Simulated assay, not measured.
Amino acid sequence: MPSMITAVRHGQSESNAAFDRAEATGAAIVLPGSDRDVSLSPLGRKQATELGRRLATGETPEAVWCSPYRRAVQTWELVAAELDVVPEFRLEARLGDREMGALSGMNLAAIRERFPEQAEGLISRRYSHRAPEGESIPDVADRVREVLADLHAECADRRVLVIAHDAVVLMVKHVLEGIPLASLDAFIPVHNASISIWRGARPEVFNDAGHLGNVTF
């Protein structure tokens, strides 16, 4: 078992920023392209740098397992630039963001316009709903559970940094602590560039973004 697991969400992405702007006006938007190729926003790059500075001042990671999504990899590159010693790095497909299938790239307003029954499902069955060709939250939990089992087998007594997405960080908490899915609302939202730490299965901190200082969400 790793001596310490630190899970972080990537910095703000261009899609996060676009959704925030749309929410402020009530606009429905559908973002083009693949979710896997979305980059960090300028704010997200600043957040990732501050995250790296925070990690450099503590118990630095000895191994890094990272989602292959561009925003996660970019977060790691900016974190690594702040570390004195760069640990071994591994891309791990099972740490990718929740697949939204036919709903990918849409904010809730757009989903309501195009797929009203799917919007209702996302709201009323948030922990069990599965979009067409997409994943449910339990699906994400299943692959996170596999990753944690592999970490326990391959990274015994090491400090591991996991760079991923809000759904993945939340499922790490669910799996390690045995928290029921229905009780996870209290831990949402998982902030961009936030830090969550477990020693073994014991939680030390969750969703801490104090290191961002004046870098706003």
Rank of each mutant, 00 (worst) to 15 (best):
A27P: 11
E177I: 03
E59R: 15
A7K: 00
S67R: 14
A22P: 12
E23K: 10
D208I: 02
R114L: 14
P68Y: 09
V160L: 09
T25I: 09
G101H: 01
T49P: 08
S15W: 11
K173T: 03
G11P: 08
H191Y: 08
A48Y: 12
I163G: 04
S13M: 04
D157W: 03
V162R: 08
R143C: 00
D37I: 06
I5F: 01
A209H: 02
R90Q: 12
R114V: 03
G213C: 07
R45F: 06
E62A: 15
V8N: 10
R130K: 13
P138Q: 01
L43C: 13
A182D: 09
S39N: 07
G200S: 14
I111S: 14
A27S: 14
D142H: 03
A153K: 15
V73L: 11
R125Q: 05
D142M: 02
M106H: 11
E14S: 10
E59S: 15
L184W: 01
V147G: 02
I188F: 05
M106A: 07
N214S: 14
A193I: 08
S128R: 09
A27R: 04
F89H: 09
D166Y: 03
T75N: 10
I123N: 05
E88H: 13
R125G: 02
E23L: 05
F187D: 07
S41I: 06
H211E: 04
G96I: 05
R90S: 12
H191C: 04
R112D: 13
E154D: 14
R9I: 02
S104E: 11
